[in-house]
C-alpha cells in the first residue's frame, strides 16, 4: 500500500515540476542568507586600508558589486540605486559600499567611477577594491563568469544587505522596485518581517503587500473581496427594507 503512495507522490511531483516556472531567480536570492560575509580587506583611494568588519561594526551597509569596464548593467544599476536612495528619507543611517569584483580595477579607477556618478563627496557612499575577491564572492554566493571573447564578466547585478554583525540579511538581483530596496534596507537594521511573498504571476488579488518602510503589510485588492460580502449583505438588507416598507427604512 505504501508503495503506491510513493509511486503516486512521484507522479504528482513529476507533473508538478514541469509546470513550475520562474521562481528560480528569487531562490538565488536566498543563497547564503544569514551567513557571515568574508571579512575582506578593502582599499579606498586616499584612505588607510580597512576591512568589511570595520564598516559594519560602525553601521550596517548595502553592498553593490560592479566592475568599472562593464558595458552592461553596472552603470544603469548604480544610477538607479543612487536615485532611489536619494529620493527617499531613511530613518536610520546606513552606508552603501560599492566594491569591484574585477582584479584589474584599482582604487583610483573606483574613485573615478564615484566622481562620474557625482558621489565622490557623499559620505554615505564608499567605493573600494579588495584583493580577496574570490573569498568575498564565495561568501556572498556570487559567481561572475569571465567571457574572454567579449572581454566582459557575465554577472548578476547584485545588492547585498549586511547588518551590524556582518550577516547577510537579504539579497536583490537585478534592477528592482523601490519597495524591494526598502525591504533590503529594513533588513540590515534587523527589522523582522515574519513573511514575504514569492514572485507570483497574479498579485492582483493578493490580500496584502509588504511595506518595508512601516514594516507592515499593506492591504491589497484581495482584501476588498473579504469586505465585499459584508457590504453586499448590508446592501440587501437596505434594499429589501426599502422595497417592502416604502422608504421607511428605520
Amino acid at each position: 500500500m505504501y508503495k503506491s503512495f510513493v509511486f503516486f507522490a512521484l507522479i504528482v511531483l513529476l507533473t508538478h515540476s514541469s509546470s513550475a516556472q520562474s521562481f528560480s531567480d528569487a531562490m538565488k536570492e536566498e543563497i547564503n542568507i544569514y551567513q557571515k560575509i568574508y571579512d575582506a580587506p578593502l582599499q579606498v583611494a586616499g584612505k588607510p586600508p580597512a576591512s568589511f568588519k570595520e564598516f559594519y561594526s560602525q553601521q550596517p551597509f548595502v553592498l553593490a558589486l560592479v566592475f568599472t569596464r562593464c558595458v552592461g548593467i553596472c552603470s544603469p544599476f548604480l544610477v538607479n540605486l543612487k536615485e532611489t536612495i536619494q529620493l527617499q528619507p531613511f530613518e536610520k543611517d546606513f552606508k552603501i559600499i560599492v566594491v569591484s569584483f574585477d582584479p584589474w580595477d584599482t582604487a583610483d579607477e573606483m574613485e573615478l567611477l564615484a566622481r562620474n556618478l557625482g558621489l565622490k563627496s557623499d559620505p554615505k557612499w564608499i567605493f573600494a577594491v579588495t584583493d580577496s575577491i574570490d573569498q568575498m564572492n564565495r561568501s556572498l554566493g556570487f559567481d561572475p563568469v569571465w567571457d574572454s571573447v567579449r572581454m566582459q564578466f557575465d554577472h548578476d547585478a547584485l545588492l547585498v544587505g549586511i547588518n551590524g554583525d556582518g550577516y547577510i540579511t537579504k539579497k536583490l538581483i537585478g534592477l528592482r522596485e523601490r519597495n524591494e530596496l526598502n525591504q533590503l534596507v529594513a533588513s540590515i537594521h534587523n527589522v523582522f518581517s515574519p513573511t514575504y511573498r514569492l514572485p507570483n504571476p497574479n498579485i492582483l488579488f493578493s490580500c496584502f503587500n509588504y511595506d518595508p518602510i512601516s514594516g507592515k503589510n499593506k492591504p491589497g485588492l484581495g482584501l476588498a473581496f473579504l469586505a465585499l460580502p459584508a457590504v453586499m449583505a448590508v446592501g440587501v438588507l437596505l434594499i429589501v427594507s426599502m422595497s417592502v416598507r416604502k422608504r421607511k427604512i428605520l
Binding site: F5, A9, V12, L13, H16, S17, A20, Q21, F23, S24, M27, K28, E29, E30, I31, N32, I33
Partner: peptide, 17 residues
C-alpha cells in the same frame, strides 16, 4: 510538496527541489 519535505541550508529551486 505532496508528500515530501525538502529541507536545505541553501535556497530550494522549485524546478528541481
Amino acid at each position: 510538496a505532496q508528500f515530501i519535505f525538502y529541507m536545505s541550508e541553501q535556497a530550494i529551486d522549485p524546478a528541481k527541489p
